[in-house]
Design a protein around this nucleic acid. Structure first.
Lengths: 192, 192, 192, 192
DNA sequence: AATGAATGAGGTTTCATTCAT
DNA sequence: GATGAATGAAACCTCATTCAT
């Protein structure tokens, strides 16, 4: 989060992130410092300096995801139709996770586990925007009221998990999201 | 799966399983052979003999879960109301996973990853019963037809994942299941 | 060596030997009890009963080799030409080792390492015959006199070792033996 | 082969080699990483870092032997008398192996088994020098022509093996070498 | 006498982290 | 700040041998 002062430090940090992104894109979420250092062509110590542990690195990687989601949340909140707002928000939350497993891992955890305060701040910012969107949907009667904002986050993360099981996702994402959105509408059965 | 002939072999196998169950119950799913051996008070080699790898052990632990689920699936298939059958089945699938993380891990994977053919057989048996239940529900028009049996399994596993995020589950299981069941009813939006 | 009394015991002993011979023929000289037991379809304990350790098994396997060599030694001693006798003896010693790595391993060690007294006896018997052959050759002036009987055994074992290095032996055995036999004739340079 | 940059790295590498040399000198060729680490007073990981496997370590140990032999080969090639050249070369090859079992093990294998390309290079360098020495001996008619360079290497290795059998070598080395050198002179019997 | 499960020391290897340079 | 070697705990696994049945 904090930008290094020296130019080479910044460059090294970028290298680690680029390498890590490539690894994640290649399906490797282990993010081992030694491994990244070797691939990035820098020393392990340097990687540790920039990212004291795996979680810190993960959060740095998740940053783009947060940004994208904040955009989506703002777009959702501008929408007139509250139901559409919810759909935009949740779809973005789903899509972003599918696109970025690092973001998926971070968003599936609670703020207590954040290594970087900046992540917690992002999270809070996103939470507020989401709360607005979801709140108006609840008030408009298009969203169940027995689910908290966090419940919705959990359910989307669960949907992501569902999509990760089995073969490569084809059109499953759309279908699973539909199921979730349908299930979120009020008027269904009683919970219990 | 195969019961050892010797009495002490059976006893040791049980000890490993008991120890492993205790570990899992305590939230430790790592199931390391050395660790289990030490805790069970038997040699590492013995643990390796009975369970050549973590997966094999996991599947042995999951056995009870499969049995319970088979019961539930039979009960579900005997029900007159197809919708009730689906609910019984999926609720059991959810409950069993919450009660047994080892079973949850096994059921969330595909048969190709089975270490023990017996697991695959269990899986197939369960799959047939489930197919009957789900098929009649589809024919009765109480279940979306754009989801395969596996999709439903995935979605329940996703719900389990959602429940594992955050604090200890209170009444969340019931609420999340409600959302899922509601979402599974036909007549919702088009997928996509 | 000692013949088991019970018929099944004898059968098991044979099974182990047959299996071991197959393993050795397949290039595996490790002769691990567990492995042999599994392959022979009998219990490990049984293998241990018959052959308390690898060496004992090895010596049992080497038995045929000793018998064959004793025959060759007798043939050699009957020969009129002492030089021919030496050649027959050493060639047999070489050939037998190439044909049977187990015999090669036993014959390359000293009697102190014998696990079975019978092996030492065989060895002694062979030694006497060889001594006769070699003695007359020395007296006839066709064999260097600065080499003991054991030296000759060592040199042949060395030749076997030389043949084992590198690729499969083609005509190397004959050529290497020729070198040895030529070197053994008196009249060469002084040792030192 | 590659000298480490850090001082402690070089020191640790040396410690491992020294410890290994002591072990080999003590008759233990097993060269187990754990054991060496403990004896050298350094971490196991360090030993593995420097020498990924037994063979790599062995080759590092053999390095001195190669150097010594290269010297001998150069001396041999400078000699006027081709027969003397052969004797110098083969005697050195024998002596070095007796002095250094690690070198003996490496030189008794084929280049395909080299873990370190440097070893193969050493081997090639030695091979060229040896080829010159042996070639002129063959042309001068003082060395059999039905033996390749490799055959000669094998035969010397075989002689080393012969010397290792039985009790500690007294004057046997000289006598065995004499036998070999005599056998290598042309004019003996036909091979086969 | 036969069986084969149990044993557990010890080998090999990986890895997260520290620290000398 | 950067480097990457060193560390050593711990995971993983094999194997020779013993011993309960």
């Amino acid at each position: 989060m904090t930008t290094p002062r020296r130019a080479d430090a910044a460059r090294n940090r970028d290298r680690v992130l680029t390498t890590a992104r490539a690894a994640v894109a290649g399906g490797d979420l282990s993010l081992q410092h030694n491994d990244l250092a070797r691939r990035a062509g820098i020393g392990v110590g340097t990687v540790y300096r920039h990212f004291p542990n795996r979680r810190a690195l993960l959060e740095a990687l998740a940053d783009d995801g947060f940004a994208a989601l904040l955009d989506a949340a703002r777009a959702a909140s501008r929408h007139d139709d509250p139901a559409a707002g919810v759909e935009i928000l949740l779809r973005a939350l789903l899509t972003r996770q599918l696109a970025d497993p690092a973001f998926a891992e971070v968003i599936a955890t609670e703020p207590e586990q954040d290594a970087d305060a900046a992540t917690t701040a992002r999270r809070a910012e996103l939470g507020e925007l989401a709360h607005a969107v979801l709140g108006s949907a609840r008030r408009a009667g298009v969203l169940r009221t027995d689910l908290t904002d966090d419940d919705l986050r959990h359910l989307v993360c669960g949907t992501v998990f569902a999509l990760r099981i089995g073969d490569a996702p084809d059109d499953r994402a759309g279908r699973y999201l539909r199921v979730l959105l349908d299930g979120l509408r009020p008027g269904g059965g009683q919970s219990g």
